[in-house]
């Protein structure tokens, strides 16, 4: 549905995005993840035809965003970082206007608007002025605007920014519900958001893709060997020696009552053996956890590790 190849955007001396390549299949929800200033918004602006790329191509639904902008725009719904709302209009009027300029037939207008209102649960406020709505509602009106013409592709830039936790959950469920029907690219610098809604994530940093994979795959890829943490009453040396001799244990370090056991790569399940050894030596296990890298840590690793290819990129 979306094909991006060798996309580069240079602002004066600054390279905002550098040689991006990715593909999104129809019906997929893809998270576009990266720290602020990584080039997420730039990529989205190029995809929606707001600005041209310096080089490279992007295709949506088979149309090149530069060659056939009108066809592309007809197939794309866009929610920018700040929802583009006319505060003096009522929700219904606004959505009708948005539908009309996106080429919805006049006879289908009412239906399109009521569909969008229903999907975003805005029925209660349909006749209120947008200026009088709370931030959460406004965000939803923005989302309704993006999907009122039933586009094949939805591009959502920081869709849940500034919402309260309840609203965030609602909007995530909403986005999740829209997958399948629409192809969705969702940008965010908030990780749980991406984990909660997306099937696949593209991590971008300093204008380059540093990883693209499913969340599980990413976790697995980074989690080369894991670490167990054990807190004991008595750190008996014999027990620790027993840990060290288990096959697959790479290193054991001990800090007062806390023992951390590092496993080498592709080691199977070792916890029963470890526990057995601890109990046999009467260490008195208080706590036993496996230390996994959370998505946050993966993200940090991906975006802070210096890769040689980024050295040519300006900041």
């Amino acid at each position: 549905m979306i094909q991006v190849s060798h996309l580069t955007k240079i602002y004066g001396p600054r390279t905002a995005i550098n040689d991006l390549n990715f593909e999104v299949k129809a019906g997929e929800i893809v998270g576009f993840l990266g720290p602020n200033g990584a080039g997420k918004s730039t990529t989205m602006k190029i995809l929606t035809g707001l600005m041209p790329a310096s080089s490279g191509t992007a295709k949506i639904a088979g149309f090149d965003v530069f060659e056939n902008p009108i066809e592309v725009k007809r197939n794309v719904g866009f929610l920018p970082e700040t929802p583009p709302l006319y505060l003096e209009m009522s929700v219904t009027d606004y959505l009708e206007f948005a539908a009309e300029i996106h080429g919805v037939e006049r006879s289908q207008l009412k239906k399109a608007v009521s569909n969008a209102l229903e999907k975003t649960a805005l029925g209660d406020v349909r006749n209120r002025l947008i200026g009088n709505l709370s931030k959460g509602y406004r965000q939803r009106v923005g989302l309704a605007q993006a999907l009122v013409h039933d586009p094949k592709v939805l591009i959502l830039d920081e869709a849940s920014v500034g919402l309260d936790p309840k609203q965030i959950i609602e909007i995530r469920q909403l986005i999740k519900g829209l997958g399948g029907e629409h192809t969705i690219i969702l940008s965010s610098h908030i990780l749980p958001e991406v984990t909660a809604t997306c099937q696949r994530i593209i991590v971008i940093n300093q204008g380059q893709i540093v990883a693209t994979d499913t969340i599980e795959q990413l976790t697995r890829r980074i989690n080369k060997g894991s670490t167990y943490l054990m807190t004991v009453q008595k750190p008996i040396l014999a027990g620790i020696e027993a840990f060290r001799h288990l096959p697959g244990v790479k290193a054991v370090s001990i800090h007062e009552q806390r023992i951390s056991i590092e496993l080498s790569e592709s080691t199977g399940e070792l916890r029963p053996q470890l526990l057995e050894a601890a109990v046999k030596n009467g260490m008195g296990v208080l706590e036993f956890t496996s230390e996994k890298l959370s998505l946050e840590e993966i993200f940090l690793q991906l975006t802070t590790v210096e890769t040689p290819s980024t050295s040519g990129t300006g900041v």
Binding site: G49, L50, P80, L85, I101
Partner: peptide
């Protein structure tokens, strides 16, 4: 200012 220009510029109109 209201960034509604983005709405017009991303719509299939010239």
């Amino acid at each position: 200012k209201q960034s509604t220009l983005q709405l017009l510029m991303t719509a299939p109109i010239t």
